[in-house]
């Protein structure tokens, strides 16, 4: 048991700093010496996650498959994690690291609100994730902890949805319309780009059911060529996780609704 940092009056005031003070920090800091050979980072973030803006906000979806090499470990993984009332983090990469990051992030936002008596700014939240990714660089270089997340949120101050994606070192990019990462992302990006550019209406004009259907189709298309992406498994009734963030908050689509929507729109 460590003496609380707050009692001494000159300890750390941010949550990751508090975790380090208590010896609870999950990741080694970035300057930990890297052992072994410097293998090039192989992009084995085997999964597919996507986010795009639609008429009422932003949709975030992820397939359910977790793999280790060519073995399917689990077909019901949840890769879209709720961080606060208006924010979701979707993860592609090593689950152990990613879930730990989501936990740190969720606690950091709560901790900030409780101690500072104000909600953390959007930029602060986006950068908090960036910082976690940078701190994780040691594991990335050892080839065991690559995480490539998407962060989606509804900017309640500006009244608009926002989507950010990251590289494994923590650089953040704001997506104009959509983002996709993971091994199945080339296919998803092709589908979303095609829809956004050549379909009857761009992504940001889609209504909620249309957006959900598109997400299912895009993930299933990715699964067609990528063995590490689960897609839609109608026989086992396993559907991707689909969540919507609107001004009102986060809505998770139930499986029954996804099944109905998907089935009604299959080609004859």
């Amino acid at each position: 048991m460590h003496t609380p940092a707050a009692l001494s009056g000159n300890g750390p005031t941010d949550f990751p700093g508090i975790l380090r003070h208590h010896g609870l920090a999950p990741q080694p800091p970035a300057h930990t010496p890297v052992t072994g050979h410097h293998s090039p980072v192989t992009p084995t973030h085997a999964t597919t996650i996507l986010a795009f803006k639609f008429a009422d906000g932003v949709l975030v979806a992820g397939d359910r498959r977790a793999t280790a090499g060519n073995v399917i470990m689990y077909d019901r993984a949840d890769k879209v994690l709720e961080i606060d009332r208006h924010s979701l983090m979707a993860i592609a990469g090593v689950p152990a690291t990613a879930w730990e990051m989501a936990r740190v992030l969720e606690h950091s936002f709560h901790f900030f609100r409780r101690t500072q008596l104000a909600e953390m700014s959007l930029e602060g939240k986006v950068r908090a994730l960036s910082k976690l990714l940078r701190d994780n660089l040691g594991l990335v270089l050892q080839g065991v902890g690559v995480v490539v997340p998407i962060f989606a949120t509804f900017d309640t101050a500006a009244g608009i949805p926002r989507v950010y994606f990251y590289d494994p070192m923590g650089a953040q990019f704001e997506a104009a319309d959509f983002a996709a990462t993971g091994s199945g992302s080339p296919a998803v990006r092709a589908v979303l780009h095609h829809e956004n550019t050549y379909a009857r209406k761009p992504l940001r004009k889609l209504k909620a059911p249309e957006a959900v259907l598109l997400a299912l189709r895009a993930l299933d298309t990715a699964a067609e060529s990528d063995s590490a992406t689960g897609g839609v498994d109608r026989r086992a009734r396993v559907f991707p996780i689909v969540k919507l963030i609107t001004r009102k908050g986060i809505e998770t689509l139930p499986e029954s609704k996804l099944a109905r929507l998907y089935k009604a729109n299959l080609a004859d």
Partner: peptide
């Protein structure tokens, strides 16, 4: 303020760990 921050810190680290 010190007691409040201490309580938040203890609860948050317990909840996290």
């Amino acid at each position: 303020e010190r007691l409040r921050l201490t309580a938040i810190e203890l609860a948050s680290t317990e909840g996290f760990a």
